[in-house]
Computed example of a mutant assay.
Amino acid sequence: MAETPDISKLQDQVFELVRRSQEAILDAGRSFADNLASVAPGDREAIDKLLDDAFEFTERVLKTQRELAKSVVQAVTGPLTGGASGAEGESGDSGDDGGE
C-alpha cells in the first residue's frame, strides 16, 4: 500500500515559497518608490512612464505566480490521479514572453 503524502508539510513548503516571492515583490515596490522620489517633481511624463512600467512588471509577476500555482496543483494532484508528476514544469520557465 502506498504511503499517504504529508500534505501539511507540502502546504508549508508552498506557503514559504509564496511568502518569499511576496517579500521580493515588496522589496521591488519599495525600490520603485525610492526611484520615483528621485524623479524631478515636475516631470509628469517620467512619472507616468514609471507607473506604466511598474504595472507591466506587476502583471508579469502575477502571470508567473498563476503559472506557479498551476504547476503546484499539477505536481500535487498528478500522483493522486495517476497523471504526470509535474516535473516538466520545473524547467525554470517564468512565463516571460520576451516581448517587453
Rank of each mutant, 00 (worst) to 15 (best):
L62F: 05
D96Q: 02
T58K: 04
R60V: 00
D52H: 10
A24W: 02
D93Y: 09
A84M: 08
Q13N: 07
Q74W: 04
R66W: 10
V18L: 13
R60A: 05
Q11T: 14
I25D: 04
S85A: 09
Q74N: 13
E56Q: 13
E45L: 01
G98V: 00
A87R: 13
A84R: 04
V72D: 00
A69N: 01
I7Y: 14
D12P: 00
F15E: 15
K9C: 09
K63Y: 11
L10N: 09
G78A: 02
S91G: 09
D12A: 11
Q11E: 15
T77P: 15
D96I: 02
G29W: 10
S85M: 04
T64I: 04
A75R: 04
A28W: 06
S71G: 03
F57W: 12
L17C: 07
A75M: 06
N35L: 10
E45H: 00
D53R: 02
S91W: 14
S31V: 06
R44S: 15
T4I: 12
L50T: 02
T77L: 15
D53L: 03
F15V: 15
L68E: 01
L10M: 14
V18D: 02
A54Y: 07
E23C: 11
T77H: 10
T64Q: 05
G99R: 14
T77D: 15
G29F: 12
T4Q: 10
L62W: 09
L62Q: 05
R20S: 11
F57T: 12
V73K: 10
D27T: 09
D12Y: 07
D53G: 01
R60P: 01
